[in-house]
Design a protein around this nucleic acid. Structure first.
Lengths: 101, 101
DNA sequence: CTTATCTTTGACAATATTTGTCAAAATAAA
DNA sequence: TTTATTTTGACAAATATTGTCAAAGATAAG
């Protein structure tokens, strides 16, 4: 259950690449990538798409990691986080039905 | 499975109160309350707390509605919304374990 | 120990998003 | 018609996000 940051740090270190290399590919300063990897900043969707390219991952795979990070972040230090999450899941199911069939 | 806006509109209309009355209680312009009720703007936590007071609801009850709205909003029009939501739920469970026991 | 490379930190700027006011237009009720 | 209520949209203020940059802190190599 890794965060996006943990995942890409592992991938990057697995290839023994410096932050600079990946950051340049993303078109951002290495300082930001450093922060993203350690969870101090959040990636944008564009970053995620490019990271999937860079590391040859399925885009949807990395997007789910990124989105779930965002959701968990949204209810960080909320007592009612889990309860809200469950209700939200139902709301999303309903939204989906509404958009499709 | 009402949104916060739907809930408070029903409550307000149930008491036959104009937007003005509730908006003044919240300390905001009625235009905003109108938008919140119709889901065009989002309430702040402060609004929610005051609304719970105003309508004599359990604060946590309304907070769950508000939080779940925020979560659902965060993944609006995302194909991977539901999948991300499920992963996020696990992440939240883990966070909780980390903070408590 | 010194130098070179890599990573982290923090101050700051630019941009985007959110939250609000206000006034006018639209709607509904008297 | 009037009067009260609600909705809309343009705009401003406040806040949050995303980024650069330069310096400080680690790590590794010579």
């Amino acid at each position: 259950m890794d965060s996006l940051g943990e995942r890409i740090r592992k991938l990057r270190e697995g290839k023994e690449l410096p932050l600079r290399t990946v950051a340049t590919y993303l078109g951002i300063d290495q300082a930001i990538l450093s922060k993203i990897e350690r969870g101090q900043r959040r990636a944008t969707r564009e970053h995620v798409v490019k990271l999937a390219m860079f590391f040859s991952l399925k885009e949807s795979d990395l997007l789910v990691t990124w989105l779930s990070d965002k959701l968990a972040y949204e209810v960080r230090d909320e007592d009612l986080a889990l309860e809200a999450m469950k209700v939200a899941e139902e709301k999303v199911k309903y939204q989906t039905r509404k958009n499709n069939g």
